[in-house]
């Protein structure tokens, strides 16, 4: 590597310029808007104004935590069962699991309305057997279901790819040393799959906590999530840019803090996220 010259470092120059202008500067501008008033003078009033959205933050975090937990619980066995298949079947089922992701995210969410609506498929069925109708759409449950559905492959994929790399001899060793199936799971497989679990959690939590489409379509705008608030305020015109920027800034800080905390648990992987 010592022969690497000035030239090979220079090729990255366009990227450095790009990242500076379009990654760093936008965040500075967001912070600038968050700490200034409409006239451009420094103020903390936007930060005080955020307290109005305390409930939105609380609900967003609550929904996202529940959705992430459910996704993890459902995905973990799936990923485990996938590793038990023949290699050729594994590739096939991986393709099958990923395929719905290629449907547009908006349509994926929207289709659930057809299933969950009061005149939808489930309620038509329930009515036919004399049990319905049940209010499914426009409930917190529907929003959480939407989050789980939209982001589940992001959980299955990292867990699966870490699990397939677990050395079989480690499991055999555990068996030889007297570990039963349950102990092999809790003491060997689960700890070794933790890096996959961690990246799965972050990949589901971040889009869930910041979503605005899912809650609009499946939650009926009853509980404003933080993403809804940001989208709504920005659409209301330049007068609301300052408060909306403050909300975005807080959301970003919150997410980065969560990721840093998550990374503490994941001490084995040096190529992990550096925040």
């Amino acid at each position: 590597m010592n022969k690497k010259s000035f030239g090979s470092r220079l090729v990255a120059a366009p990227y450095y310029v790009w990242a500076a202008i379009f990654v760093v500067v936008p965040l500075i501008i967001t912070a600038y808007f968050a700490f200034t008033g409409k006239d451009g003078s420094f103020t903390l009033s936007n930060m005080y104004g955020i307290s109005k959205y305390g409930k939105s933050f609380a609900i967003s975090i609550l929904y996202a935590v529940i959705a992430t937990a459910v996704t993890l619980l459902v995905s973990y066995p799936m990923a485990y069962f996938m590793t038990k298949l023949k290699i050729s079947s594994q590739r096939m089922i991986l393709l099958i699991v990923m395929l719905p992701m290629w449907m547009n995210f908006l349509i994926r969410t929207y289709s659930w309305i057809t299933i969950l609506a009061n005149t939808g498929l489930i309620n038509t069925f329930l009515k036919a057997i004399g049990l319905g109708p049940v209010q499914l759409i426009n409930t917190p449950g529907a929003v959480i279901l939407g989050m789980v559905y939209d982001f589940i492959p992001y959980m299955i994929l990292p867990i699966y790819s870490v699990m397939t790399k677990i050395d079989h001899s480690v499991l055999e060793a555990a068996e030889d040393l007297g570990a039963n199936g349950f102990h092999r799971m809790t003491k060997v497989i689960f700890p070794l799959s933790l890096p996959g679990v961690i990246s799965g959690i972050t990949m589901v939590f971040v889009p869930s906590v910041s979503t605005f489409y899912i809650s609009q379509k499946l939650g009926g705008n009853k509980n404003l999530l933080i993403g809804d608030a940001i989208e709504f305020l920005f659409n209301n015109g330049p007068d609301y840019y300052n408060i909306a920027s403050a909300l975005s800034l807080i959301l970003m800080v919150m997410i980065l803090l969560c990721l840093t905390v998550m990374n503490r648990f994941d001490n084995g992987e040096p190529e992990g996220i550096i925040v």
Partner: peptide
Amino acid sequence: ITSVTNIPLMNADIVTGVSLMLLFIF
């Protein structure tokens, strides 16, 4: 540089979108 590279990857899409919009409007 690695940290800056990771920002759009880690950040919520809505924050990336909004911050770019503010830059363009600016």
